[in-house]
C-alpha cells in the first residue's frame, strides 16, 4: 500500500502500542495537537491521555523521566519536536540513557526510543536546521537510525520500539510528506542492516535520510550519461552495516558519501575510515564526501542552498573519481 512517511510512522507506533501496554508516547504537543508534524494523529483518541502524554517544554526533564520509566520496565517513545531540542536533553541521553546499562554491570536496561525530525527544512534558521546524528553515533550505548523511505521508517521504528536499548530515531521534516510503497501486514526491518537501493557497477554512493533521495536523483542523471552508480542506504547509522558498503566498494572501486551534517567530524568521515581500513586495496581513487558546509545554517534561501549538498555537487564528486 502507498503511505506517506508520516503515516508509516503513525502505523508503526499504533501497531506496537496495541501490542504492548508498556509502550507510551511522551513529548511536547503529542496528544491533543497530534504532534507538531501530525505524526501522532488520532493517538490520544485511540489510546487515551494516560499513554499519549503532553509535556511542558522541558526536554531534559521529560527525557530523563522517560529514562527512569524505562529503568522500571516501561518502553517509552519520546518525541522530540525536533532533534535540535535533543541538545537540551543531551545530558540525559549521553550520561544516563547510554551509560546506565554499562555502569550497572548489566543490571539495568533502558528500552527507549527518542524520535523526531533532524536536518534542515526550509529557512528555519540556525537553531532549527542541523544534523546531529554524528553526535549521537559517537556515544557508546546508543543505537542510531535514520530511515529515508516510508517502508524503512515503519519497519525500523517497530524494531526500535522492541529493542531493549536506547535508540535515537532520526526523521526529517521534508520527508514526512513523501510517499512510498509499504509492505502490507506485520513486518519489521532489522536494525543494523543496510540496503542497496539501486544497483550499479561504476561507483558506490552511500547516503541516508533525505540525502538518499538526492543520491538516487544523481544516479538517475548519471545513468543517462552511462555512469551506473550503486546507491546504498545504511538506514541504521549505528551499528553500521559496513559489510554491505564494503561489498559494493569491492565491486565498484569508488565511493562517494553524501551527508547533510557538517563536514568536520561528520559521519562520513567515520564511514570513510572504516572503508579504508577494510577495503583500501580495492579502491581505485580516494573516497569523496559531499557534506553540509561548516557554517551555522543561514536563513536566506540562497545561502541555505549553498550550505547543503545538492545535485551538481554529488554529480561532480562522482565524476571526479572516474
Amino acid at each position: 500500500m502507498e503511505l506517506s512517511y508520516r503515516e508509516a510512522l503513525n502505523q508503526a507506533m499504533r501497531e506496537e502500542m496495541r501490542r504492548d501496554r508498556r509502550i507510551f508516547l511522551i513529548g511536547e504537543d503529542v496528544a491533543y495537537y497530534q504532534g507538531a508534524f501530525k505524526v501522532s494523529k488520532g493517538f490520544v483518541e485511540d489510546f487515551g491521555s494516560r499513554r499519549v502524554i503532553d509535556t511542558p517544554i522541558t526536554e531534559a526533564g521529560f527525557t530523563g523521566l522517560a529514562i527512569g520509566a524505562a529503568m522500571a520496565g516501561l518502553c517509552p517513545i519520546v518525541e522530540l519536536m525536533t532533534m535540535n531540542f535533543g541538545i537540551v536533553a543531551l545530558d540525559q541521553i549521553v550520561n544516563n540513557a547510554a551509560k546506565i546499562r554499562y555502569m550497572s554491570g548489566g543490571q539495568l536496561s533502558v528500552p527507549l526510543v527518542i524520535r523526531g525530525p533532524g536536518s534542515a527544512a526550509h529557512q528555519l534558521g540556525a537553531q532549527h536546521s542541523q544534523s546531529l546524528e554524528a553526535w549521537f553515533c559517537h556515544v557508546p550505548g546508543l543505537k542510531v537510525i535514520a530511515p529515508a523511505t516510508p517502508h524503512d521508517a515503519k519497519g525500523l521504528l517497530k524494531s526500535a520500539i522492541r529493542d531493549p536499548n536506547p535508540v535515537i530515531f532520526i526523521e526529517a521534516q521534508l520527508l514526512y510528506g513523501t510517499k512510498g510503497e509499504v509492505q502490507e501486514g506485520e513486518f519489521t526491518i532489522p536494525i543494523g542492516v543496510a540496503e542497496v537501493k539501486r544497483a550499479g557497477r561504476d561507483v558506490t554512493i552511500v547516503a541516508y535520510s533525505k540525502m538518499l533521495l538526492l543520491a538516487l536523483e544523481a544516479a538517475e542523471v548519471l545513468s543517462r550519461e552511462g555512469i551506473e552508480a550503486e546507491v546504498i542506504d545504511p538506514r541504521t547509522l549505528k551499528p553500521l552495516d559496513l559489510q554491505t558498503i564494503v561489498t559494493s566498494v569491492k565491486k565498484t572501486g569508488r565511493l562517494v558519501i553524501v551527508e547533510e551534517g557538517w563536514h568536520f567530524c561528520g559521519l562520513g568521515a567515520q564511514i570513510a575510515e572504516s572503508v579504508y581500513a577494510t577495503a583500501f586495496d580495492y579502491l581505485d581513487s580516494p573516497i569523496r564526501r559531499v557534506t553540509g558546509e561548516d557554517v551555522p545554517m543561514p536563513y536566506c534561501r540562497l545561502l541555505e542552498d549553498a550550505a547543503l549538498p545538492d545535485l551538481p555537487r554529488v554529480i561532480e564528486a562522482v565524476k571526479s573519481l572516474l
Partner: peptide
Amino acid sequence: VDLPHRFMGGYAIVGGHIPLATGLAFANKY
C-alpha cells in the same frame, strides 16, 4: 546499583538523577 535491593543507582551529574527518580515514580503510577 543493586537492583535486587531496588537501589537504582548513584549518579554523578548533579541534578541529573532527579528526572530519573521522577520517571521511576511515573512508571509506578502508570
